[in-house]
């Protein structure tokens, strides 16, 4: 920091700082403020009332259920995919890596649509599902599937570069010391990536709860049954229930803030270890 050569004149430094702050204020702080202002426009009681209607509570419940199913599944998938990619050589590895990236490059609406095409009445598996009295589209399973699809890159993408950088020597060392594959995973591989895994899970969870496009296509918007929080926000807003819409939106915003705070807090608490282990 004391390096004279990389010091800029005060004017440049201030201009850059103010520019960055103004940008953040305009695009992040202001909308967030607007959400809160609108949510509390009619006072604290109206806010609580808006949150405690049956349909709102059921949308919160559904969102939590969807996240509770899709996040653990994505942890399992992300861990096994990145473990396989980083520690073993096999055919089709680069194909697998590109496939993992796919949900990022596909519009969420398309992600939802493929499930309609697969499981819908006219879909590939539709007739079979009807015969067996199974509902996927316009029901909770469809929402879970679409959410898993859009969120599955988060954990894997966080872990693959980390595991590749760490190489496989520590695992080999554990093996020569007599550890089984499973113990090596628990004692060596997993602890080495736990921070990356944690970030991945946070991002994955935030997206799972906030996903709109893909879920919107498969949900069918049945009130009290298949509306997640983001979908519910839209419905309330379209019905001119601004307090209700922004109250639910404030919960989603809160989720984002808590996620950020948790990440920062963990980084701060474990800063020594993060330095020691080279993260």
């Amino acid at each position: 920091m004391n390096n004279q050569a990389i010091r800029e004149p005060a004017l440049v430094r201030w201009t850059l700082t103010i520019l960055a702050l103004a940008f953040l204020a305009l695009f992040l702080a202001l909308p967030l403020m607007a959400v809160l202002v609108e949510a509390f426009a009619k006072g604290w009681n109206a806010y609580l009332r808006a949150l405690s209607t049956d349909v709102t509570l059921s949308s919160i419940r559904l969102t939590l259920i969807v996240a509770a199913i899709s996040v653990p599944l994505n942890i399992a998938f992300g861990l096994s995919a990145s473990w396989a990619i980083a520690k073993f050589d096999f055919g089709g590895k680069s194909l697998l890596i590109s496939l993992i990236e796919l949900p990022f490059s596909v519009s969420p609406v398309i992600s939802g649509l493929i499930y309609v095409l697969l499981f819908g009445l006219q879909g590939l598996l539709g007739p079979w599902l009807v015969e067996n009295d199974l509902r996927v589209i316009f029901a909770v399973p469809g929402i879970v599937l679409a959410t898993i699809f859009v969120t599955f890159p988060f954990v894997a993408r966080e872990l693959i570069p980390l595991m590749e950088e760490q190489g496989r020597e520590e695992e080999e060392a554990a093996l020569t010391l007599g550890a089984s594959g499973l113990r090596t995973f628990w004692l060596v591989t997993l602890p080495n990536v736990r921070w990356g895994l944690f970030y991945g899970v946070l991002l994955c969870n935030a997206r799972a709860m906030g996903e709109f496009g893909a879920v919107s296509v498969v949900s069918g918007h049945i009130r009290g049954l298949t509306n997640t929080m983001p979908l519910h926000v839209e419905i309330l807003y379209n019905e001119y229930d601004f307090v209700g819409a922004f109250a639910v939106a404030s919960l989603l915003a809160l989720l984002a803030l808590v996620t950020l705070a948790a990440k920062t807090a963990l980084e701060w608490w474990h800063r020594d270890e993060l330095v020691a282990t080279g993260h």
């Binding site: 020597e169 080999e172 060392a173 093996l175 020569t176 010391l177 007599g178 060596v188 080495n192 020691a276």
Partner: peptide, 20 residues
């Protein structure tokens, strides 16, 4: 015989110590 059953010690070039 797999590596874990050979009772052969291996010191890696870059040591491969468990960093955590």
């Amino acid at each position: 015989l797999g590596a874990r059953d050979r009772r052969i010690g291996f010191v890696f070039q870059h040591y491969a110590l468990f960093r955590h």
